Simulated assay, not measured.
Amino acid sequence: MTNRDRLLGLAVVVLWGLNFLAIHVGLEHFPPFFFAGLRFAVIAIPVLLFVPRPRVPWRWLLLYGIGFGILQFAFLFTALRAGMPTGLSSLVLQSSAPFTVLLGAVFLRERLRGVQLAGIAVAMAGMAVIGWDRAHHAALLPLLLTLLGGLGWAFGNIGSRMAAAASENVNPLHLTLWMAVVPPIPMFALSALTEGPATGWNDLIASCSSTGWPAFAALAYIVALGTIAGSGLWTYLMSRYPASTVAPLSLVVPVVGIAASWAFLHETPSALSLVGALIVIVGAFTATSAGRRVPAAVVEDATPGPIRHTEPTRQPFQDPKLVDA
């Protein structure tokens, strides 16, 4: 990865780390499914009117939108509303990194090395430590919901890579914007069925007051910086590098998320959760930093060895008339 792309990756890390604060604020005003649908609807309407659809198969665009847009945020927002700490959720959601490696091996046939499998095992052990701590201090369900959100993100990563691979000249920003077209209707339908058909809309109207501006500020940040800028840059990186090369960047997001939650929300994670977090980061980094191995044939050809003198290959005699024929 070039230095320029590393800087772009770090920009994504900061944008997504602070995004959890905006999500926290938004969920104080809106129910989770409605808020998820609203964040994508704000993007989808102008996209349908002004942005040309990228020439990629619909199945990969749908996989991208369902995984990244619907599954990730339906589970994450529900987990946060159910009591998942904001800073800790920014860590647990990074389970998408080892999930992405595993799915990349299954669907993209990216070769897994032994060290990657060991790293995935270590990351899972760290998640178990956090789960043990959560089970003794709070409900375990929010943690499981956040893990499912990480799995949804991983499926979205695979969808974005498959979509980018299906077309040589796909615009990463256009791909990200059209991904946002997929979630609104399903999320609003889920909101109507589980949260009430008028609940979210009543909360939206109630936010149009002098005290409701934080809700719209949070929505603006999530749409403009968290989704368009952050996800656009992420899609660009996923289209240029193997999933196992890009995924480690997301492991820095919890550092920003936990620090921001401690500074602004006064969340202080327990010592055991911090130990589990460290184990997760070490394991996930190990699992996703190995990159892609150089093919053995290339390595053998590039390895210096003794000079061998070989006889020129003798070609069998061919009658020129038969060759011309």
Rank of each mutant, 00 (worst) to 15 (best):
R53F: 04
R53K: 15
R53S: 12
P54C: 13
P54Q: 10
R55G: 11
R55Q: 15
P57M: 13
P57I: 12
W58K: 14
W58R: 14
R59P: 10
R59F: 09
R59G: 11
W60C: 11
L61H: 08
L62D: 11
L63A: 15
Y64C: 08
G65A: 11
I66C: 14
I66Q: 13
G67A: 14
G67S: 15
G67R: 07
F68Y: 15
F68V: 12
F68K: 08
F68A: 13
G69V: 08
G69A: 12
G69I: 06
I70C: 09
L71G: 01
F73I: 03
F73A: 02
F73T: 01
F73W: 07
A74I: 00
A74E: 06
F75M: 10
F77P: 00
F77N: 05
A79M: 05
A79K: 03
A79G: 09
A79V: 02
L80A: 03
L80M: 14
L80P: 02
R81M: 15
R81P: 15
R81C: 11
A82C: 11
A82R: 14
G83A: 05
G83R: 09
G83E: 11
G83T: 03
M84Y: 04
M84P: 07
M84N: 10
P85Q: 12
P85R: 13
P85Y: 09
P85D: 12
P85A: 13
T86H: 06
G87P: 09
G87M: 07
L88Y: 03
L88I: 06
S89A: 14
S89D: 03
S89W: 01
L91F: 08
V92I: 14
V92Q: 02
V92W: 00
S95M: 04
S95T: 06
S96W: 00
S96H: 07
S96M: 10
S96G: 10
A97G: 10
A97P: 04
P98R: 04
P98D: 08
P98E: 06
P98H: 07
F99S: 04
F99H: 01
F99R: 03
V101C: 01
L102H: 05
L103R: 03
G104K: 00
A105V: 11
A105H: 09
A105T: 09
V106A: 15
V106I: 15
L108I: 06
L108E: 09
L108T: 01
L108H: 07
R109I: 13
